[in-house]
Design a protein around this nucleic acid. Sequence first.
DNA 1: ACGTTAGGTGTACGCTGTACACATGTCAAG
DNA 2: CTTGACATGTGTACAGCGTACACCTAACGT
Lengths: 225, 225
Amino acid sequence: MSRGKSAPRPPLSRERVVRAAVEFADREGYAALSMRKLADELGVVPMALYKHVADRESLVDAMVDAVVDEYEPAPADADWRESVRATILSARRALARHPWAREAIESRTDRTPAVLGYMESLVQHFFAGGFSANLTHHVMHALGNRIWGFSPEMFNPAPGAAPREPQLSPEEIVERFPGILAIARAAHADPTATSCDEDFEFSFALDILLDGFARLHDRGWTSAH
Amino acid sequence: MSRGKSAPRPPLSRERVVRAAVEFADREGYAALSMRKLADELGVVPMALYKHVADRESLVDAMVDAVVDEYEPAPADADWRESVRATILSARRALARHPWAREAIESRTDRTPAVLGYMESLVQHFFAGGFSANLTHHVMHALGNRIWGFSPEMFNPAPGAAPREPQLSPEEIVERFPGILAIARAAHADPTATSCDEDFEFSFALDILLDGFARLHDRGWTSAH
DNA sequence: ACGTTAGGTGTACGCTGTACACATGTCAAG
DNA sequence: CTTGACATGTGTACAGCGTACACCTAACGT
């Protein structure tokens, strides 16, 4: 009799699971993502997911891979500096589309092949610019998580999170943290602005690092291990 | 009669709870810490903790505060650069004593007064060096999480964590990630060494940033907002 | 002597990841 | 056509989590 059931649900697949997870996290945030809610989303019982992903950890791995897949390659004619910069800013654009990816990436301990591939591409940009393996090693460390297009939020709390406590009165802030207050105001032409231009801050720090790399490279720097 | 009970347990207090939590995390790791296990540790029922801390989040806040309290002030006669460097390296030493603090700090969204006080002290070092509020704002962003004494682990997986999958064969690594392999080897005089000198990498990146800050400061740089 | 309160207890709820046994539907081999 | 294997989805169950809420008990100020 086949089945004229109400919902002729397409069969699951690893790819469908991962895509649904990405969309769910885009919509509801990383913290809201759970195996059970994702199963609900797919109209399926939680354990069904485990036929397609080993566990939650490897699902997140796959989600990160999906983000990395969105990175755009650097223009072919660029020098090392432009290549690295363009690649990292492309990562940053992908991150803007998937804000949860920051938390996901920070929580990873293992590197998937896709992730290693991305890091390899950065390394090759430095090599193409004549960087030694030694210097490249150190500059990759110095970039750190910045290769994923994010730097830690210094002043802006995570979006959508209300402070847990009243914390401090304005008077106390003025008295105890005048410096923080001053620099918070100094960054904005509009002194009532509440949030920083994160893109600017990101490029600012990135360029300082790239400048430093260039200088070390020019003078043939190497660590004296 | 009074009570000659077997365990004349000292009464709980917020400080005792926090200290026990710090010791537990030192010993068992951040992931292992739960309200229930901590209560066990203190010979008390889980809900008893809630008489002293509002919830798990504010317990972690207090734990981070405890770490920040261990930071040592910079020598009084140092210039801005030495002061900042010494302060941050002091934070790094505290982090070495409390490895869980990295995860804890990364998971914070609100800043406690103690945390703001630490940031304020850094800001004041820059001010004392003649930095404008504007430049100080940007350099604080550029430092990012580095002010807490850590940079992201690029290559070393979290200590004590076994890889979940065999991942890739050595042949595949050689073929697909020659650059990563090269830089992994280049950093160590001993090519069989498996881990990086994280302290070196940390200072390396920190000094590049401080160099950059000094240069911008010397030329009176300001963002053209 | 008595009401208030601070601190510890016990129970309970809803949430999480996932182990395990089971049902079903598809397909290859006999 | 039958049969057995395999892939896929289901259902139940368990241990763990944070924490709300009602309760008890001991100490203390009046």
